Amino acid sequence: MMIIGLIWALLLLVVMIMMSLSILINKKTFMDREKSSPFECGFDPQNSSRMPLSMRFFIITLIFLIFDVEITLLLPLVYMPISFTSGVSISLFIVILLVGVFYEWKEGALSWVN
């Protein structure tokens, strides 16, 4: 029992030494330029967090999530043996995907300009 306590004390000492060294060695500044710049969503971290979300960003995020889920549904179909019913279901699924893409394209949601 004494050996287990000694091992724990040694581990605690090693962890404390490593954490102290990392604090002393790091070059992180409080006002790092990259950390304080706006991220992908476009929010400025210095402003209020109650700013309205851009509808354009929201729609692009939803489209990405929808098509990301659809890709995860399509990938297992590559390894599935093709029969008549599976071929019809795969074709129907792809047609639904294409109709969705063309609808989003027609509505202008996929346009990156403006």
Rank of each mutant, 00 (worst) to 15 (best):
M51I: 09
L65M: 15
V69N: 12
S20Q: 06
I59W: 09
W8K: 08
L77S: 06
S54H: 04
M2R: 15
V113T: 10
M18V: 14
K35A: 13
G42Q: 11
L97M: 01
A109E: 14
L10Y: 03
L74I: 11
M16W: 13
S49Y: 14
M1R: 04
L53F: 05
L53C: 02
V99K: 12
E40S: 02
G108C: 06
P45E: 06
L75C: 11
V99G: 02
L53Q: 11
M16V: 09
F93A: 02
P38T: 13
M51S: 06
Y103M: 01
V78F: 11
L62E: 01
I82T: 05
I63A: 04
P45F: 05
L65N: 13
V88E: 15
V101M: 01
K35N: 15
Q46R: 15
L74C: 13
Y103P: 06
F57H: 01
A9E: 01
M18P: 00
S89H: 05
Y79Q: 01
G42C: 07
I82P: 05
A9D: 10
V15Q: 10
F58E: 07
L98E: 02
L6V: 12
N26L: 07
S91E: 11
G108T: 05
I23W: 13
P38D: 10
I25N: 05
D32F: 12
K27C: 01
S91A: 15
D68G: 04
T72K: 11
L73W: 06
M18K: 05
L10S: 10
Q46F: 14
V101D: 01
L6Y: 15
K28N: 08
